[in-house]
Amino acid sequence: MLKLSKRLQTIADLVAPGTRVADIGSDHALLPTYLVQTGRSPSAIAGELNAGPLAAAKKQVKEAGLEAKIDVRQGDGLDVLQAGEADAVTIAGMGGCLMAAILSRGAAAGKLDGVRELVLQPNVGEELVRSWLLDEGWLLTAEEIVEEDGRWYEVLRAVRSSDADALNGKLYDTSFLPSGIGQERGRRLLLRMGPLLLRRGEPLLGAKWAHELEKMEYICRQLSLSETPEAKEKEAGLRRDMDEIKEVLACLPMDKRSCS
């Protein structure tokens, strides 16, 4: 039985049992191989654009004896998928901007017709993926965070729902955040940090953002060395962002502290 990394295992665990999966940017096809091996998915499509990873994916599937159940295809993003071929789409290991672009282009071409579930793991730019899901009427149902080899990854699961607009309205309600942040900034923070992660007070979220705040502090110190108005303005903006993030983290349920 194939053993997955913590990151890929987290993704696999969020795929609903019994779903036909299309894994986009599948690399070595580890995820679809595991899903079919374990019986979580009856069949899968492994899509890969580049020749090297495509060959590796085909080798993996052949060695697992799953060529009849996993179709390895070469193509750009969701181009490998036809409408109705998959119940779920997984995309992992790329930036949020690229991921949102792949989803937009695929949706416009009808590639997501019949797809009921998306499991997405952006390496950066998680807020761009959440914004896409929100704008396109997908309901965010799960968010997980995992640390692996010194890096932090967020995994998002979204589904189609006839009540998506109403449920998303509740999900992105900012009333549980510190009142001084305001609705507009609060909405941006929810998109950036994850509404479900924040609401449940995910402990790893604090660790991830402590690391991010260190990076932001370093940038601020570098900007402070410049006397240009642009640098000063950018530093001030970053400082405001940092203060808001710290204020939100201080109010996580796990901290048992007051948000007033």
Rank of each mutant, 00 (worst) to 15 (best):
residue 165 D to Y: 07
residue 107 A to Q: 15
residue 95 G to N: 02
residue 154 E to L: 09
residue 105 R to H: 12
residue 162 S to C: 11
residue 127 E to T: 02
residue 92 A to V: 06
residue 162 S to K: 13
residue 165 D to T: 14
residue 137 G to S: 12
residue 153 Y to V: 03
residue 148 E to R: 11
residue 86 A to N: 09
residue 159 V to W: 06
residue 90 T to G: 04
residue 150 G to V: 07
residue 87 D to R: 01
residue 102 I to L: 15
residue 143 E to N: 11
residue 122 P to S: 11
residue 110 G to I: 08
residue 155 V to K: 08
residue 135 D to Y: 07
residue 118 L to D: 00
residue 137 G to I: 04
residue 163 D to I: 04
residue 124 V to R: 13
residue 106 G to W: 00
residue 128 L to T: 12
residue 111 K to N: 10
residue 119 V to E: 00
residue 88 A to C: 15
residue 163 D to C: 05
residue 146 V to W: 11
residue 93 G to A: 07
residue 95 G to Q: 02
residue 90 T to H: 07
residue 104 S to W: 06
residue 92 A to M: 10
residue 140 L to K: 00
residue 86 A to H: 05
residue 96 G to I: 05
residue 136 E to G: 02
residue 130 R to F: 03
residue 154 E to T: 13
residue 110 G to H: 09
residue 150 G to L: 06
residue 117 E to L: 02
residue 143 E to A: 02
residue 129 V to Y: 00
residue 158 A to N: 05
residue 90 T to R: 05
residue 160 R to A: 04
residue 83 A to V: 06
residue 119 V to I: 12
residue 142 A to Q: 13
residue 103 L to M: 13
residue 98 L to V: 13
residue 84 G to M: 11
residue 118 L to T: 01
residue 89 V to Y: 00
residue 127 E to R: 12
residue 106 G to E: 00
residue 132 W to T: 06
residue 91 I to P: 00
residue 114 G to C: 05
residue 126 E to P: 03
residue 124 V to A: 14
residue 120 L to V: 10
residue 109 A to H: 08
residue 98 L to D: 12
residue 124 V to G: 07
residue 83 A to L: 03
residue 125 G to Q: 11
residue 123 N to G: 12
residue 116 R to G: 11
residue 149 D to L: 08
residue 91 I to Q: 01
residue 108 A to P: 06
residue 90 T to V: 14
residue 110 G to E: 07
residue 96 G to E: 07
residue 101 A to H: 10
residue 152 W to N: 03
residue 159 V to H: 09
residue 154 E to V: 14
residue 147 E to R: 14
residue 137 G to R: 10
residue 148 E to T: 10
residue 94 M to C: 11
residue 95 G to V: 04
residue 156 L to E: 03
residue 111 K to S: 03
residue 152 W to K: 05
residue 160 R to N: 06
residue 144 E to N: 14
residue 96 G to A: 09
residue 108 A to L: 11
residue 157 R to F: 02
residue 82 Q to T: 10
residue 88 A to F: 01
residue 121 Q to H: 05
residue 119 V to Y: 01
residue 151 R to F: 09
residue 107 A to P: 05
residue 106 G to R: 05
residue 127 E to A: 14
residue 149 D to P: 01
residue 146 V to D: 11
residue 103 L to H: 05
residue 85 E to I: 11
residue 128 L to G: 13
residue 157 R to K: 15
residue 146 V to I: 15
residue 142 A to I: 04
residue 101 A to D: 14
residue 125 G to K: 07
residue 126 E to I: 13
residue 83 A to R: 08
residue 94 M to K: 05
residue 103 L to G: 01
residue 146 V to N: 11
residue 93 G to C: 09
residue 108 A to F: 01
residue 114 G to K: 03
residue 116 R to A: 13
residue 153 Y to M: 06
residue 159 V to F: 01
residue 163 D to N: 14
residue 89 V to R: 02
residue 118 L to H: 05
residue 164 A to G: 08
residue 129 V to A: 09
residue 118 L to N: 02
residue 148 E to D: 12
residue 85 E to R: 09
residue 112 L to A: 09
residue 83 A to C: 09
residue 123 N to L: 14
residue 129 V to Q: 04
residue 89 V to K: 07
residue 151 R to Y: 10
residue 148 E to F: 12
residue 105 R to M: 09
residue 130 R to T: 00
